[in-house]
């Protein structure tokens, strides 16, 4: 009887998890070994053929490279800015509440709305950025139309959107540090930077790890802005892995290949997350 109760209590959560997480994962893996079926020709088992195709796919490698640059651009910058903002608004400061709110605002805006705001910034000639450049006599530039700048435009937007969110975690962690520690540091003559480097930052490491993992996942997951700003263009210069998967699945209607790409994405994320935990865990002090 006790076992029945146990299973009954587990069932609601289990149904949700299996239906929306485990089954889709397994189904995706399964589909990636089959060809794309049509009305005339049902899907057939093709082994690793989809994967071999993926390795030969130039666009795949391009979006992987884009995604790596995007991650490298957004993750450290957004974490550093978040930490800086948190330290800043944790101190004594006039209108502190307003400053905290201002930093947090980008987080509560929907990504689609954010992208529309930034679309105006980046628009050639009439956009805010170009108007600003004109003040210094610089020529107009099609920021989103230039393959050399488009990815960085997306990166800046993502940093702006995410830093405020991560700031909240750092702010909470900073406020949980006992104030006597700082006083003890001041008595010993530790300067602000020295104290930050030797005490505050190490004590924030658990939060930093948490934020780092979230930032990493987001750098693969957050692609909404592409729909508004660039649609991955020009010439896939701003396309990211997840956006490419969406295109393959719903524009090119090649679900089997999309499943293959998804497996690649999941594997990448799993390896990164495991790596972060194992490497960082040894160097972190948990209270």
């Amino acid at each position: 009887m006790r076992q029945v109760y146990g299973w009954l209590l587990l069932t609601p959560a289990a149904i949700l998890l299996i239906a929306f997480t485990h089954y889709p994962t397994v189904a995706t893996l399964w589909h990636s070994f089959f060809s794309q079926g049509t009305a005339m020709r049902p899907a057939a088992y093709v082994g690793l053929e989809n994967y071999l195709y993926m390795l030969d796919d130039e666009i795949f490698w391009k979006v992987v490279r884009n995604n790596a640059l995007y991650a490298a651009g957004t993750i450290p910058a957004s974490i550093a800015i978040a930490l800086l903002m948190a330290v800043w608004v944790n101190g004594k400061l006039p209108l502190r509440g307003l400053a905290r709110m201002a930093y947090f605002t980008p987080t509560i805006l929907p990504m689609i709305a954010v992208a529309n705001i930034w679309l105006f910034f980046y628009t050639p000639e009439i956009g805010l950025l170009d108007q600003f450049m004109r003040l210094f006599g610089l020529p107009s530039h099609n920021w989103l139309g230039d393959p050399d700048t488009v990815l960085w435009c997306i990166v800046v937007l993502a940093i702006w959107k995410e830093a405020g969110f991560f700031m909240i975690f750092f702010l909470a962690a900073l406020q949980s540090l006992p104030p006597e520690l700082e006083e003890a540091g001041r008595l010993e003559g530790a300067g602000r930077w020295y104290y930050f480097r030797r005490v505050t930052f190490p004590l924030l490491m658990p939060t930093t790890l948490f934020v780092l993992i979230n930032a990493t996942i987001n750098s693969f997951k957050l692609v909404d802005q592409l729909f508004i700003l660039t649609k991955g263009g020009p010439d896939n210069a701003s396309s990211l892995l997840l956006y490419y998967i969406y295109e393959v699945a719903f524009s090119f209607l090649d679900e089997a290949y999309a499943a293959t790409l998804t497996v690649a994405l999941l594997a990448t994320l799993a390896i990164i997350a495991i790596g972060q935990f194992f490497i960082m865990d040894k160097r972190i002090h948990y209270r």
Partner: peptide
């Protein structure tokens, strides 16, 4: 100063806690 809560740095060992000020100086 000795604080009521001791104000020891939790991530540093006893040695590092004691010589914290000497390192600063």
């Amino acid at each position: 100063m000795v604080f009521q809560s001791y104000a020891l740095f939790p991530h540093l060992n006893v040695r590092e806690n004691i010589i914290f000020g000497l390192k600063v100086r």
